[in-house]
């Protein structure tokens, strides 16, 4: 059931914002070597908002590090806007916003932005960036005295200084309230309309579903699904039937036509099926099943089905 859907067919004339081909990454852990990324192919077109979704340890951060040129693939190639990642960084074409850290506490907000701006060949004016990020009023405040939310806005100001073509976000809305999260995503979407590509790592399914054009699901260092939220959900389509029966016989339930999976927990039985009507009719007419509940599978189930170790 581990299906990799086809990559969107980008026309050959446009340069991909991100292109990973056959990328692997191994780390030496003592005498053993751990493979964090195992053969990853990915192409992202300019202007796409892509969610990088996967459980912790799936290889999200390792992959982002390679796109940023912070580490090199063990094998395979990583390209950003048709060039090596470090070259794209040197031209201010790629920015990233980290989840935590990355700030000097003894600088003021304005000094931090000025410091960063001085490292690029061209940037937007510091005052304009401070204004866009909504931190003009706290420009002279020391970073140490800023709240978590204010520090996050400062990180965004720094990332947008060079007007990057590709923006990478690692768990961007951690710690934001619902309102902040909505405001954040609407500004990201406005940015994407100007041609900026956004790739964000998250383990919030809902966030990926709501805000990304495309979800790339990764697990154990590989792409296990790639498509829109709806497409991902359909990969784990079907319904779950839950009922109780005095003496469950798993094999008997598995033989019912249309049943894809059986779980028995004491007297409770859970069946997975794509044809819930037929299975329900059979259960209620030919077995002792009681208390029948039918539920649709959500993205959560798709996520677990596609990435789970349990199977």
């Amino acid at each position: 059931m581990t299906s990799t859907s086809t990559l969107p067919d980008g026309s050959a004339t446009r340069t991909a914002a991100v292109r990973l081909s056959g990328v692997t990454k191994s780390f030496a852990m003592g005498r053993e070597s751990v493979e964090a990324v195992r053969g990853l192919d990915l192409e992202i077109q300019p202007g796409e908002i892509v969610a990088f979704l996967g459980p912790n340890g799936a290889g999200k951060t390792t992959t982002i590090d390679m796109i940023l040129g912070l580490s090199r693939p063990t094998t395979g190639t990583a390209e950003v806007l048709g060039m090596a990642p470090r070259d794209a960084i040197a031209r201010g074409l790629v920015s990233a916003v980290m989840q935590t850290g990355g700030l000097l506490k003894d600088l003021t907000v304005r000094e931090t932005v000025e410091y960063t701006a001085a490292l690029f060949a061209d940037t937007r004016p510091v005052d304009e960036v401070l204004g866009d990020a909504g931190i003009t009023e706290i420009a002279d405040r020391k970073v140490a005295k800023c709240s978590g939310g204010e520090q996050q806005r400062l990180r965004f100001a720094m990332a947008l200084l060079s007007d990057p073509a590709l923006l990478l976000l690692d768990e961007p809305t951690t710690g934001m309230d619902v309102e902040g999260r909505r405001a954040f995503w609407s500004s990201i979407r406005r940015d994407a309309e100007t041609g900026r590509t956004v790739l964000f790592a998250t383990h919030y399914l809902e966030e990926a579903d709501q805000y990304a054009d495309r979800i790339v699901l990764i697990s154990h260092g590989k792409v296990v699904a790639d498509g829109t939220g709806a497409e991902i959900k359909s990969l784990a389509s079907g319904r779950t039937l839950r009922f109780t029966v005095p003496t469950p016989d798993a094999d008997a339930f598995a033989r019912i036509p249309g049943v894809d999976g059986v779980e028995v927990r004491g007297e409770t039985v859970i069946l997975h099926t794509k044809d819930s009507d037929a299975v329900a009719r059979h259960l209620l007419t030919s077995t002792d099943a009681r208390d029948l509940e039918i539920t649709a599978k959500g993205l959560e189930d798709a996520f677990i089905a596609l990435t789970g170790d349990a199977r």
């Binding site: 940023l68 912070l70 960084i89 040197a90 031209r91 201010g92 790629v94 920015s95 990233a96 980290m98 850290g101 990355g102 700030l103 960063t116 490292l119 690029f120 060949a121 720094m158």
Partner: peptide
């Protein structure tokens, strides 16, 4: 790490 994301 932040500086590594700049041309420095």
């Amino acid at each position: 790490r932040q500086l590594r994301l700049t041309p420095l």
